[in-house]
Simulated assay, not measured.
Amino acid sequence: MPLFADSIYHYLQHRGEAVELWQPTAVFSRFPSRKLKKWLGYIDQYLIFPFSFKIRSFFLSGSKTIYIFTDQAQGIWISFLSTKKHVVHCHDFVALKSALGRPGFPKLSATGVFYQKIIKRGFSRANNFICVSNNTKKELLEFLRRQANVSVIENDLNRPYYRISKAEATPILNAIGVFEEDFFLHVGGNQWYKNREGVLRAYLQYCTIDPVSRPLVMIGAAPTAKMKELLSNSRFSERVRFVVRPPFEVLRAAYSCARCLFFPSITEGFGWPIIEALACGCPVLTTDEAPMNEVGGDVVRLVPHAADMSPEAWTDRAAELLMDLSEMEDHDWQEISKQGLSYIRDKYRESSLAKYLSFYQGILHQ
């Protein structure tokens, strides 16, 4: 979460707060050993760093200092400072739910399970939390099994997302080999819960019912072997374009020209692409389950959760919804685009960073 931590750090500096950014530094991991680099990095993170900030915290005023943990995954460090004023930002518990063997979640290795249990033990000692969604708050309280001081503050847009004109966006997209407008768009990595294979299956099924099918642009990670296999067995494979980790300007241009963002994740902590797309006037088709339907409010279109139907039935239903968006009259499309823009303006009248500061100050004044 370096970008998230940096945004908080710079905002607090801008507001005139005395703020320091503490993070592990390379000590043992500087040694030139490829085989041991990972394990030497663990020594830096989990032995050297906690020892150093424990000493540094001893010399700071307890009543005037608050310790901000920017991710609950820093739980292994939280236990060292849980008796001091603190707040923990909670994003998602996907890895922890996998470690606990929740149905539908992939299994972790023995070391992965051990690591997640240490994280849980650490953040469970904290008392003050900021969660990115009501769904994350609900899950946090289930893990804590007690009451705590929890505020829900949704993520802010962390880049200047807004609709740019097609005249400005077209050359940006042409430069990466995207030559058509009004395409379907997916944004995300290859994590299992992003459901990228489901995106492809639904899109390829859509192509069979739309004789002039719109292309699909998938921005994020390179395709997996399974995704390549799906495409190799389809006559519509040339309609799919992968754009691997492009710069921000390409992503904003894609949102500004897309017919819709198709974002049928299995689960999320928040679902940043939803608000990014809406801020650029791009309609969204996402999963009818929290937090996706929570983040998108009543301006997004919803597809059933993949676990609620057979794979075939879900693919057919998602393809039908894509077809509906493809055939939508221009004035109707413009209307839902405007609704999304208005929703984002209303949602972020006060920045999340300002809300964070208010929460921090409340803890400091206790």
Rank of each mutant, 00 (worst) to 15 (best):
N135R: 12
R125Q: 09
P106K: 04
L140I: 05
R125T: 11
H89I: 10
N127E: 15
K138Q: 03
V150L: 06
V150F: 06
G104S: 05
R145A: 15
N128A: 03
R125C: 03
V152G: 13
K84W: 06
F105I: 04
N128V: 03
N134G: 15
P106H: 02
A148R: 03
R102T: 10
V150P: 04
E142G: 09
L141G: 09
E139T: 06
L96E: 02
H91Y: 10
F123Y: 12
T136L: 07
L96T: 02
I118V: 14
P103L: 03
E142A: 05
S124D: 03
A148E: 12
V87E: 04
L140N: 07
H91C: 02
T111R: 14
H91G: 03
A126N: 08
S109D: 02
F123G: 09
N128Q: 07
L108E: 02
S109R: 02
V113K: 14
E139F: 02
F114K: 14
V94I: 14
S109P: 01
N135T: 14
Q147T: 11
E139A: 02
R102W: 07
V152H: 15
H89E: 12
R125D: 06
A126S: 12
E154M: 11
F129W: 06
Q147N: 13
H91N: 09
L140Y: 04
E142V: 03
F105M: 04
L100M: 08
L96H: 02
S98F: 07
F123I: 12
A148L: 05
Q147H: 09
F114M: 14
A99N: 03
V113H: 08
I119K: 00
L108F: 01
S151E: 15
K85N: 12
F123E: 12
K84G: 05
N149K: 13
A126K: 08
V132S: 00
A99G: 00
I118F: 12
F114H: 15
E142Y: 09
V94P: 00
H91F: 08
H89N: 13
